[in-house]
Design a protein around this nucleic acid. Structure first.
Length: 701
DNA sequence: GCGGACTCTCTTTTT
DNA sequence: GAGAGTCCGC
């Protein structure tokens, strides 16, 4: 079943184990077998084993495979994402941090709104401090394990950032909310500052296993340290070449220096790739080889050569979509199922033209990720109603829906309402009860019918399969307010609400409490893993998702669209310099190694982004793929030099030039001749411009 | 408080 | 280019 290296890793004894597992080398399989080995051969009780992963998808897969191997639903092995496991701990101990155990999680939308409110209250204009910059900075602190108390002073345009961090944390606490990073940080704080809790958590597990270890950030590292320092039974599996979460604070050094950090760690290497054809691996190896600062290694193919991957240059994103569709149809004719075909892009917005064309030619597709189901407005509204009805909704949720549908509460009224609610010191749902009992004053009177409705419906809730969701949405007039939005929009929103109703019914059949359902919704945010009825999977559809989301997955056929400068590598990472580019290269490597049989890369010469037109060059990564490992439909070097345009400077298409005010750029096109000659230049910083060659004062760079 | 017109930002990636 | 956020007149 396992090859010798996998078996050695799976059956290793106690103590820290580092499994360096290349793409497609049977990583998850090895982890699952190791867990099986611990239980069956070593006699470790299943519930004393903790398996940690990063994404819901890989957590779900681990669970599935464990169930297959061990049966009995994985036999009670504790598993989940860092965030989900942390939440489980916090639901038990968060009171030690001054949080009620019923705290909720704030999603990124509400987080942004909260940050904006804080900035506004302090008269800090968004052009002086951009909200998302502040959010990123705070997250950065949290990933590093810093609280407002021990964060070194940081000024930005004369603004004290640490103050804002503290204010944000206060607001969160006041609203009884934690953000995603808090989940991890707060568990660490519990373990740092509460020896009794630290001990309780530490003795809970005898073995801890971590998947995708290359993506751990310092706070997760400390989290593991606390749990494992005593028994040292930490098994980590990962691949430094697939580290793609640097922006989330992931630090490859945790895996590169694992043996130094965990004394006496045993190293296992899995380098045989069972997934991809030799031709695909050749391409992947060529790409990743260019990165420095990595474990020197090369994936070994176990499969025959197969088809050489190809690269197509397209005119624009629609032409690209057409070529992608053509390729998909060809793969279909070879007998590949849609579900074995994936389109993996760098940025979610790239899906738009692809979706459009797939719809036109009737290729069923499924978008994984993008705007998450639980992030949609109508779902957040409906959940707020439902949570208040089921006595777990909080102030933010009441504020969210108090004027949906319109109840005559505007900005002023909202302010008063918040003040009243805060002054009461009550839970939002208790306060509504108080209103219903006739204690409403001022604006609060406008909420009276709603408060009474809640009490009325609660009485029948236990009988209803969705615990009153539909009743409250109907009776409150919320559904009508959706209907008023126009047929098409209302239709899809109502569909979503109905889907939510299904999810709630499923969760109730699984005996989940309302709070547990809210947790699930907050952590999953997209709807896939919640979906037990396989309805969606029955439609055989092409998968579209970001490269980040594709990590850990595999498909027969993979399309990587947009292999261009500015997209892959992404513009934002270009600005970060070498380390940013190295991560982009790993991203491409991850993309290529998802494929078993076929890979198609595409680049567009013209691409529209927020209304602007760009003329990207092919990705620099293409240069590390010579013609014998990548079929190119176009010669890579200088795209057909245009005849001499009578310019002494020797400027041609593809020439790098510099302009006194626009800076560096690349020539995209030449037209006309002599004094009338014009050039189109794509400047690195100033965008694309069409200039008279004679006056442009361009210099060859 | 509401609705319409206007302006401006946005999306790199995820829990 | 779309959707959200802001401003203003009613």
């Amino acid at each position: 079943m396992l090859n010798p290296a996998q078996q050695q890793a799976a059956e290793a004894g106690d103590g820290p184990q580092l499994i360096l597992a290349g793409a497609g080398s049977g990583k998850t399989r090895t982890i699952v077998y190791r867990i099986g080995h611990l239980i069956a051969q070593t006699g470790v009780p299943p519930h004393r084993i903790l398996a940690v992963s990063f994404t819901n998808k890989s957590a779900a897969e681990l669970k599935d495979r464990l169930s297959l191997l061990i049966g009995d639903n994985g036999g009670g092995v504790a598993s989940g994402t860092f965030h989900a496991i942390s939440l489980r701990f916090l639901r038990r101990y968060a009171d030690a941090l001054g949080y009620p155990l019923s705290f909720q999680i704030i999603d990124s939308d509400d987080q942004k709104a909260l940050i904006k409110r804080i900035l506004k209250a302090r008269n800090i204009a968004t052009d002086r401090l951009h909200p998302s910059y502040l959010i990123n900075w705070i997250e950065h602190c949290k990933h590093a394990g810093l609280t407002p108390d021990n964060t070194p002073e940081h000024g930005w345009n004369g603004i004290n950032m640490v103050d804002l961090y503290a204010a944000y944390q206060n607001e969160l606490k006041r609203h009884e909310r934690m953000d995603f990073s808090d989940l991890i940080l707060n568990v660490v704080l519990l373990m740092r500052n509460h020896p009794d809790i630290a001990t309780a958590l530490r003795v809970r597990f005898d073995h801890v296993l971590v998947d995708e270890y290359q993506d751990t950030n310092p706070i997760q590292h400390e989290w593991l340290m606390h749990l494992c320092s005593e028994h040292q039974n930490l098994t980590v599996v990962g691949d430094d070449d697939q580290s793609i979460y640097g922006w989330r604070g992931a630090d490859v050094r945790h895996i590169l220096e694992f043996e130094r950090i965990w004394n006496g760690a045993t190293l296992h290497r899995l380098q045989e790739n069972y997934r991809s054809s030799a031709a695909i691996l050749k391409l992947a190896n060529a790409v990743i080889r260019e990165n420095t600062d990595r474990h020197e290694k090369e994936l070994k193919a176990t499969k025959p050569a197969g088809e050489i991957p190809s690269w197509k240059v397209c005119n624009d994103e629609y032409d690209e979509a057409r070529k992608v569709v053509q390729q998909i149809e060809q793969w279909q004719s070879l007998g590949y199922k849609n579900s074995e075909i994936a389109i993996l892009y760098r940025s979610n917005r790239q899906s738009l033209p692809l979706e459009q064309l797939c719809r036109e030619v009737n290729i069923p597709y499924r978008i994984v990720g993008g705007l998450g189901f639980f992030e949609r407005m109508e779902i957040k509204d409906a959940l707020a109603y439902w949570a208040l009805l089921n006595r777990c909704g909080d102030k933010l949720q009441l504020m969210r829906i108090c004027n949906k549908p319109k109840r005559g509460i505007g900005a002023k009224g909202l302010e008063q309402l918040t003040a009243q609610l805060m002054a009461s010191g009550m839970h939002a749902y208790d306060w509504l009860d108080l209103l219903a009992s006739g204690q409403a004053e001022g604006v609060a009177k406008k909420l009276l019918p709603f408060a009474q409705l809640l009490i009325e419906i609660r009485a029948e809730c236990d009988e209803l399969p969705d615990r009153g969701l539909n009743r409250i949405l109907e009776a409150s007039g919320y559904l009508n307010s959706l209907n008023a939005m126009g047929e098409i929009e209302a239709g899809s929103r109502l569909d979503n609400v109905r889907t939510l109703q299904d999810y709630i019914e499923i969760s109730l059949m699984q005996d989940l409490t309302p709070v547990e359902f809210m947790d699930r919704a907050a952590l999953l945010q997209s709807s896939e893993a919640i979906n037990d009825n396989k309805q969606e999977e029955e439609i055989d559809s092409v998968c579209m998702m970001s490269l980040h989301r594709a990590k850990g997955l595999e498909f027969d056929c993979v399309v990587l669209p947009g292999v261009e400068e500015g997209l892959l590598p992404h513009q934002r990472s270009l600005d970060e310099g070498e380390s940013g580019i190295a991560e982009e290269r790993r991203l491409l490597y991850v993309g290529i190694t998802r494929a078993r049989d076929h890979v198609l890369l595409t680049s567009a010469r013209l691409r529209r982004f927020y209304g602007e037109t760009h003329y990207p060059l092919p990705s620099r990564f293409i240069k590390s793929m010579p013609g014998d490992i990548l079929q190119q439909d176009e010669p890579l070097a200088a795209p057909s030099p245009t005849p001499n345009m009578n310019n002494e400077a020797g400027i041609n298409i593809g020439s790098s030039v510099s302009h006194p005010s626009f800076g560096e750029g690349v020539i995209l096109a030449l037209e006309g001749a002599g004094d009338a000659a014009r050039v189109t230049v794509q400047f690195r910083r100033s965008g694309t411009k069409r200039l008279m060659l004679k006056y442009a004062a361009l210099q060859l760079a």
